[in-house]
Simulated assay, not measured.
Amino acid sequence: MLTLARSLWRLPAPPDARPATRWDHAFVALLAVLGVAEALLRTDMDGRWLSLATFLVWLPTVLVRRTRPLRMSAVFAAVTVPLMILAWTSGDREPDDLNTAVVGLLIPFSLTRWARGRDAAVGLGLFLLVAGTSLATQPLAAGDRIGGAAVVVAAAAVGAALRSRSMLRTRQLDVVRQQERERLARDLHDTVAHHLTAIAISAQAGLAVADAKPEAARDALRRIDEEATRTLAETRKVVRMLRTDDDVADRPLNDLAGIATPGGAGPRVEVHVADGLDDLSPTVAAAVQRIAQEAVANARRHAEGATTVSVHVDRQHDDVRLVVSDDGRALTRSGQGFGIVGMTERATLLGGTLVAGPAPGGWCVTATLPAEERR
């Protein structure tokens, strides 16, 4: 219980509180007019002008009910308590309340809806002190007292309920944003990082043979130009996907052929795609392509002495199986990369599995994905 009280006390103000608008000013002006009209028409009302003056003093605080709800409660108590003390000391009745003053129920509502924890506790304490004392001292029937207390509690409960709903929506939006950031990070890592790796390897190879074999250096520059063009195209695809709200870009499985390289700088990449995979869903086909790209990029970066990287895609019953293997010696990983993490996330999100680790003669990445998305 003490932990709950502390958490409520430290509760921050919700971020959706906005300043008063012109509609708020019009609302307050309308209430002021109604209050004056009521005081003029209710000639049988005790202390009507004093009640009207009190009402008009705290009414403008309605404009800050979202941004400064505690101030609303403090001003209400500051102008109401002296009247109650004056009535007790003089033995007279308290001035009757204006019906328009029912807008005072915005005070407990605003405190539970927009105030931070400590302000809500202090403000509710002030308001309940005034309202409770008024209900207890006025000549009212027991049913009226219970009804008045219930209305105050209901106003506070509605504010708390709306606040909880707003907080839940904010959490849901945060989760969606985090998922979108992770998806964007995977796409950028799997595309740009793959091509940049190829560019770096080609540049290193070109520098190594620039003096002895100028033609080989020109070939390396040609490969760098091709990889840079692919990088730009992939980046544009990611940006287009973000702008158009498409979940999956147009990435047919046949694009895997673009990963193959006959030789040159780095190991040779061979791609074998079995027949009968044309019915894969676009999401699964995109995942297969991305995982294959990342696995090949990892092999080119980390497989020391590798000469060949093999990519095999085939169908096994209701699943599609991707195997990327190389014949190099896998260097010790620093643990700071995101390649295997991203590949595993892609497979898991589709209801599949991914295993990466040493294999006889090198390193192997095996991904098993459902041929159709699992909802």
Rank of each mutant, 00 (worst) to 15 (best):
7 S>H: 14
8 L>E: 12
9 W>S: 05
19 P>A: 07
20 A>M: 14
22 R>A: 14
24 D>L: 01
25 H>L: 15
26 A>Y: 10
27 F>G: 13
27 F>Y: 12
32 A>I: 10
33 V>P: 07
34 L>G: 03
38 E>C: 09
38 E>Y: 06
38 E>T: 01
38 E>G: 09
42 R>H: 13
43 T>P: 03
44 D>H: 04
45 M>H: 11
45 M>D: 06
47 G>W: 08
50 L>E: 13
50 L>K: 08
52 L>N: 03
52 L>G: 07
52 L>Y: 01
52 L>A: 06
53 A>K: 05
53 A>D: 03
53 A>I: 03
57 V>A: 13
60 P>L: 04
63 L>W: 01
67 T>Y: 08
70 L>N: 09
71 R>G: 06
81 V>D: 04
83 L>W: 06
87 A>F: 02
88 W>N: 06
91 G>K: 11
94 E>G: 08
97 D>W: 07
99 N>Q: 11
101 A>Y: 02
102 V>N: 09
104 G>D: 02
109 F>E: 07
112 T>V: 06
114 W>T: 00
115 A>Y: 02
120 A>G: 05
121 A>M: 06
122 V>L: 10
123 G>H: 09
127 F>E: 01
127 F>I: 00
128 L>I: 02
132 G>P: 07
135 L>M: 07
140 L>R: 08
144 D>S: 12
147 G>P: 06
148 G>W: 06
150 A>R: 05
153 V>I: 11
155 A>V: 05
157 A>R: 07
158 V>C: 05
158 V>Y: 08
160 A>D: 09
160 A>G: 07
164 S>I: 09
166 S>G: 12
172 Q>R: 10
175 V>L: 09
179 Q>C: 03
184 L>K: 04
185 A>R: 13
194 H>F: 13
197 T>P: 14
211 D>V: 09
212 A>M: 08
213 K>C: 12
216 A>I: 03
217 A>E: 12
222 R>W: 09
223 R>V: 01
227 E>I: 00
231 T>P: 11
231 T>M: 15
232 L>G: 10
235 T>W: 02
235 T>N: 13
235 T>S: 15
236 R>I: 05
237 K>G: 13
239 V>Q: 14
243 R>H: 15
250 D>R: 08
258 G>K: 08
263 G>D: 01
271 V>G: 01
274 A>H: 08
277 L>S: 05
282 P>M: 07
285 A>T: 11
286 A>M: 11
291 I>V: 13
303 A>I: 03
306 A>F: 05
306 A>V: 10
307 T>P: 15
312 H>D: 10
314 D>Q: 04
316 Q>L: 07
316 Q>P: 04
316 Q>R: 10
323 V>L: 06
329 R>N: 12
329 R>I: 14
330 A>M: 15
336 Q>M: 10
343 M>F: 03
343 M>D: 06
346 R>G: 06
347 A>Y: 11
348 T>H: 14
350 L>G: 03
350 L>F: 08
352 G>V: 04
358 P>L: 04
361 G>D: 04
362 G>R: 01
362 G>F: 00
366 T>Q: 14
373 E>C: 13
374 R>H: 14
